Amino acid sequence: MLRLAGARLLDDRDYPAVRAVLAADPVGSCMVSARVESAGLDPWRLGGELWGTDGRYVRAGALQGLCFAGPNLVPLTGGAGALRSFADRALRRPRTCSSLVGPAEQVLGLWEQLAGDWGPAREERPDQPLMALDGEPRVAADRAVRPVLPHELGTYFPAAVAMFHEEVGVDPTAGDGGAGYRARVSELIAGGRAFARFEGGEVVFKAEIGALSDRVGQIQGVWVHPRHRGRGLGAAGTAAVARHLVHGLGRVASLYVNSYNTPALAAYHRIGFRQVGRYATVLF
């Protein structure tokens, strides 16, 4: 019977095995793939650690489980034994991640192992359809949606804060006055990955490409100003960002959404997104 060793810190010698795991599910692994492709496996450059589990007696270079430990804890693959190993490693030090996020089976299985020490969570979102689009959107793209320019950060940032507060339930400007979050938003703008529709000097629609691997772009932060909801701006704006990913960047467009957000789910289905998996998130 195959026995799993404890989770170990992966390094550049494991790069081929890591890439094989990521390539098996390019949509589900986009958040981690984007980091690995740009930074390799060195923790300092990666902004976190990659943990893996191997077969104790089968050293053929294949990983039985893979988990990223950084600002978020992202268990991508692994059965019960691998998840137990990831939990053991995570519990050796104080929790620093703000969430567990990733494929639902792995996230919920890992949380079952961690909840006794890390719980209670601020919120659990166990059912988040993971969706993808690789062709022309079925909803006409909003031509007024465009990349945000660096000098527009001051106008865009309040909308980003409002979205974060509404979606995550916390104020991203708390603690450091918003310096960290502002830097992240500025980075997305500088990379051409923040999009908005402006009307009357304010943002009425926004969205971002949060993670961009060589095959997939993950759309995040979709938001419509409360005064402008009901006009179809969310669907048309998301279609514009998805079209940019598919036709402009040659990527599959992806996103995930809470299952209880029926208006958003309906809009994404109208655009042409199809469900390809299920995510879960545990927020602290």
Rank of each mutant, 00 (worst) to 15 (best):
R8D: 10
E37S: 10
G180K: 03
C97W: 12
R125Q: 13
L114Q: 04
A141Y: 04
A196D: 04
G79Y: 06
R122L: 12
N72A: 15
A90Y: 04
A264G: 07
F157L: 15
I189S: 01
A266N: 06
G28T: 11
P129E: 08
G248Y: 05
D25V: 12
A24L: 04
G234V: 10
T173L: 04
G119Y: 07
D25L: 10
A34Q: 08
R93Q: 13
A280H: 04
A183P: 00
A159C: 09
A24D: 09
T281G: 01
R35Y: 09
G28H: 04
L91C: 08
P158E: 12
G177W: 05
V27Q: 01
Y279S: 05
G234N: 04
R146V: 13
G191D: 15
V107C: 02
C97A: 15
L130S: 08
A253S: 08
T281N: 01
A87F: 05
G192R: 05
F157Y: 15
H228C: 12
G81N: 09
V168T: 07
V204M: 03
L66C: 06
V224I: 07
I219G: 02
L73Q: 03
R182K: 10
A162W: 02
G234R: 02
L149C: 06
E49D: 14
A69E: 09
L41P: 01
Q220Y: 11
A144M: 11
L108C: 12
Y279V: 10
G79P: 07
S29A: 15
G191E: 15
Q218E: 12
L73F: 09
R84V: 14
A140F: 00
R184Y: 15
R84N: 06
E112N: 11
E208D: 15
A179M: 09
A82N: 03
P16Y: 06
A60T: 13
L73P: 00
A196R: 01
P71W: 10
L76I: 11
A196H: 03
A17R: 02
W44N: 06
P94H: 05
T77P: 00
P120T: 14
V168L: 09
T173I: 09
R8I: 15
P158M: 11
T96L: 09
Q218R: 11
R274A: 13
G192N: 08
P172V: 13
L212P: 00
G55W: 08
E105W: 05
E112C: 09
L91R: 08
G47V: 13
A179V: 15
K206S: 08
E49W: 11
C30E: 10
E37M: 09
G169T: 12
G48W: 03
C67Q: 04
D214F: 01
F86R: 03
V224Y: 00
P172F: 11
L153H: 09
A236N: 02
G79Q: 08
L255R: 02
A17K: 02
I189K: 01
R13C: 08
T155D: 09
Y57T: 14
T173P: 00
R13V: 13
